[in-house]
């Protein structure tokens, strides 16, 4: 796991044994990139890489590779997300090549939310290949220097390959096996779904450690600070595969009006502190949705700054 595969900053941070810290940013709903650049500026220097989401929740936005390329221009390392919903294998491979040529070095391979959730529910979905096969596809392109059909690639894309894991989806007993499967398929790092149920995550990580998965792959724990009681309740009830324990909602409510956001940040910081100590956790992925301007503060208070400079 030690030989450098992509040379991305994220890879170097992880391989040098540092506790990684990644952020997230959604591309704009239009061709105006001012707001994107603003958000990237909030993240710059405070995280090791920024996930650029791909039509997240099946709502159309600027293509993730284009927004990732803008991040490269802005001096922020992107983690280019790709979902299986919108592209067949041809489009995937050509986008991987294009992304690499634009200086993108990290990729996160995802199934993608079903289009029924989004703003074009009448769309035809693709799902030519699934996330597991996408991981394997990118690995084949990188390591075998071949397309999926076995033809050679002239200039193979050396991506640092990421995948997602949701320890809170069902069936729980199978989740760690699916993680193992993703690692075997070629995932170099994993970013988990937002964690709120710490007990369940501890249990999950123990299984992952026992299976030796953490020696083969870097696991970044997902954190999303809760901004309000309403957001917590929405996540608990409406978002499939999300587990927000009632005690946490109560704690947030107990903070009192006007103090929910601060309490949410406190909770996130406590989580990060625990992840730093937790066996098998190699970093934190902070998904501060529409809260990019708070990332610096959270990073500071969680002791994540300064970020290591490894060149």
């Amino acid at each position: 796991m030690n030989d450098i595969k992509s040379g991305s900053n994220l890879e170097k941070v992880l391989k040098s044994g540092n506790f990684a810290f990644t952020g997230e940013c959604g591309p704009p709903k239009g061709a105006n990139v001012d707001h994107l650049k603003e958000n990237l500026a909030f993240l710059k220097g405070n995280v090791d890489a920024v996930n650029i989401t791909d039509n997240q929740t099946a709502v159309v936005r600027m293509s993730s590779w284009a927004a990732s390329a803008i991040a490269v221009q802005e001096g922020v390392e992107p983690n280019f997300q790709m979902v299986c919903r919108d592209r067949n294998r041809l489009a995937m491979m050509s986008d991987v090549l294009g992304a690499y040529a634009m200086g993108i070095r990290n990729m996160l391979c995802l199934s993608g939310d079903h289009q029924i959730f989004g703003n074009h529910p009448e769309a035809k979905n693709v799902y030519d290949i699934d996330s597991m096969q996408l991981i394997n596809l990118v690995k084949t392109m990188r390591d075998e220097e071949q397309f999926l059909n076995g033809e050679p690639i002239d200039g193979s894309p050396k991506m640092f390959i990421g995948a997602a894991s949701n320890p809170f989806a069902d069936p729980f007993e199978f989740r760690v096996y699916r993680l193992a499967k993703k690692i075997n398929a070629g995932a170099d790092f994993i970013q988990t779904q937002c964690i709120y149920n710490m007990d369940k995550f501890r249990q999950f990580m123990k299984m992952a450690v026992d299976m030796g998965l953490c020696e083969k792959c870097y696991i970044l724990a997902g954190v999303t600070p809760l901004k309000s009681v309403g957001m917590a309740q929405y996540m608990a009830k409406q978002v499939p595969g999300m587990d927000v324990p009632p005690e946490l909602i109560e704690r947030l409510r107990g903070a009192g009006k006007g103090k929910f956001a601060e309490e949410g940040i406190k909770i996130a910081i406590e989580q990060i502190e625990e992840f730093k100590q937790m066996e098998g956790v190699a970093g934190v992925h902070l998904m501060a949705i529409e809260w990019e301007h708070k990332v610096a503060e959270i990073a500071q208070r969680a002791g994540m700054l300064p970020r290591p400079d490894i060149s």
Binding site: C84, R85, S111, G112, D113, H114, I116, F117, N125, Y127, D130, S131, M132, Q133, A164, S165, N166, A169, D170, P171, F174, R178, K181, A185, Q193, P240, G241
Partner: peptide, 26 residues
């Protein structure tokens, strides 16, 4: 499978049901 996954289940599987609807079994 709503996504025709060959290596499922995806992260949207919840309590035996698909993310698209609580009436569609995963």
């Amino acid at each position: 499978c709503s996504k025709s996954l060959m290596n499922g289940p995806c992260g949207g599987s919840s309590k035996g049901y698909c993310e698209i609807s609580k009436e569609v079994p995963c």
